[in-house]
Design a protein around this nucleic acid. Structure first.
Length: 518
DNA sequence: GAGTTTGAAACT
DNA sequence: CAGTTTCAAACTC
């Protein structure tokens, strides 16, 4: 008897139950999102009258106008779409497509998922959960002291009434609606975002599981971050891990192993069909990753926190443009697309930027190398004709030709012969060019007498070098500017600490330009 | 299933 | 804001 229509409908569709905190809003959202509900004028009229309609997208628990009304609007109005979500006679319940309503709900309303609906990391889903992550079963809390009116209670935290739980002295039900509303009010006073999703950047509208998980991993992060100390953020105690997202700079965890490229994390997940992890691993250049790690750029949350802390002192209250973040975090970044930092006020907890995009990652180094190679190639092509002319010039003896080839070679970066002997990174080669230039210049000086043709060639060669250097250094400068914008090296802010008499970026840039131009 | 560990929430 | 307590889920045995 205690289980009323409300409970029945909830059993039919756990989502309905989960959302019955904000039933009218949820019903409207479901109607729009799933397109399963015909635009019932009556329903719309009532929904439009909801004083909390504007909270629809904020996942705030509604303030039911009355128990009876709530029953009718909230629960029973959901029965129609609920039925449409039921598995057909021929469908397996575990494979039945569910409406994407969960996306509107609480990706991590309460992070700790009860045993009744186990969620294994990275898409290892159990029978208790459908493919799209929608719980197939209602949560069953075991609260004893909280009366299920605090966020300790998963049901309460997720915006659900308790239903079939093992809780004691439960007041998270219709019979105690007033107390419940008081609790909601109090909770919201403490934290206005208490009932909002904790995972920012959760993917929306992605139906493919692999893509879904991948997107969540890449884009998602815990809004408040975790504070784990002993779990290494690799147990479900950790809200980030449980929500299938990497720890972020929002976290204050210790000994975190829940970051991109974490070997422990990979080991833990080894053997499972965690496509997203595989995808990420495959798209990460291991060598570059090691290089970056040993350079102090390891993208651990700790390092991010250090960077964030350091950077926040230098550039307070900055966050990344989210659109730029996503582009960069998806690896589709242009080295020159320096993100637009924008000042943000009114964000008491956000002191600096918002995502991984501000940290130095292997792909950024890769981008740099790619850039340098591309630049070098460009320069090489530009002057290849000149080299050919030298080679064919009968007025030059072979010795001179060879010397010119060496001296004139814009491809101190690209000299394939030397590259075979001693492979060097483009950056190293680019830096070596300058030394070689000095050496060859000395050589020329010691040679003493030169023909006018040689002098002309030497002048041209110098111009070539200058032009080449200018391009490479200019590109390198751009990267360094971007680098400094991203944070710091080994916790030391570049802008503030590398040079006591530091210059503003514009000055640095100008200085670079001047020096590169001689 | 009981006991322990863990970390978020609540409190001071 | 930091430290402590409370709480319930996760975990271990």
């Amino acid at each position: 008897m205690e289980k009323s229509d409300h409970d029945l409908s909830s059993h039919q569709n756990p989502l309905a139950h989960q959302l019955d905190f904000s039933v009218p809003a949820a019903a409207a959202a479901a109607a729009v999102e799933t397109k399963m509900i015909d635009s019932s004028q009556e329903t719309e009229k009532k929904l439009s009258q909801s004083p909390l309609e504007d909270q629809r997208d904020e996942d705030l628990p509604s303030q039911p106008s009355g128990t009876e009304e709530q029953h009718r609007l909230g629960v029973k109005s959901l029965e129609e779409p609920v039925r449409s979500w039921q598995p057909s006679a021929t469908e397996d319940a575990t494979t039945t497509q569910k409406p994407p309503m969960h996306r509107l709900g609480h990706p991590l309303g309460k992070c700790r998922v009860s045993k009744q609906e186990p969620l294994t990391p990275l898409g290892q889903r159990t029978e208790a959960e459908s493919k799209d992550g929608t719980p197939n079963k209602q949560k069953h809390c075991n609260c004893k002291a909280s009366r299920c009116l605090k966020l300790y209670c998963e049901c309460f935290a997720s915006g659900s009434y308790c239903n079939g739980c093992n809780c004691v002295n439960c007041q998270n039900n219709l019979e105690n609606e007033s107390a419940r509303q008081e609790a909601i009010t109090g909770t919201l006073e403490r934290n206005p975002d208490a009932f909002k999703p904790k995972i920012a950047g959760s993917p929306h509208g992605i139906n493919d599981l692999q893509e879904d998980v991948r997107q969540l991993l890449i884009l998602g992060k815990h809004s408040k971050g975790c504070h784990c100390k002993k779990s290494g953020c690799l147990k479900k105690y950790c809200e980030c891990y449980q929500a299938n997202v990497f720890c972020s700079e929002n976290c204050r965890c210790q000994d975190c192993k829940n970051f991109e490229g974490s070997e422990e994390r990979s080991a833990l997940l080894h053997g499972s069909h965690h496509v997203s992890e595989t995808y990420i691993q495959q798209t990460t250049n291991a060598a570059l990753s090691r290089a970056v790690s040993t350079s102090g750029f390891l993208n651990t949350p700790e390092s991010r926190k250090r960077k964030s802390k350091d950077a926040s002192s230098a550039v307070p209250h900055l966050v990344q443009n989210q659109a730029v973040n996503r582009v960069i975090r998806n690896g589709d970044t242009s080295l020159f697309s320096i993100p637009n930092n924008k000042a943000v006020s009114g964000s008491p907890t956000c002191t600096y930027r918002s995502s991984l995009s501000n940290t130095i990652q292997p792909r950024h180094v890769k981008d740099l190398c790619t850039l340098l190679v591309a630049t070098s190639l460009d320069v090489a092509n530009k002057y290849s004709d000149k080299r050919r002319k030298h080679e064919k010039d009968p007025s030059l003896d072979p010795a001179q030709r060879d010397a010119n080839e060496i001296n004139d070679s814009p491809d101190c970066v690209l000299d394939s012969t030397r590259m075979d002997e001693k492979p060097l990174s483009p950056a190293t080669r680019a830096l070596m060019c300058d030394d070689e230039h000095v050496i060859t210049s000395e050589k020329e000086t010691s040679a003493g007498v030169k023909t006018s043709q040689e002098k002309e060639d030497a002048d041209t060669s110098s111009e070539i070098y200058l032009e080449k250097e200018r391009q490479i250094l200019s590109s390198f400068r751009d990267f360094l500017i971007q680098l400094s914008n991203r944070g710091s090296i080994k916790g030391t802010n570049i802008k503030t600490n590398t040079n006591p008499s530091r210059k503003e970026p514009q000055d640095e840039e100008q200085s670079h330009r001047d020096s590169s131009l001689g």
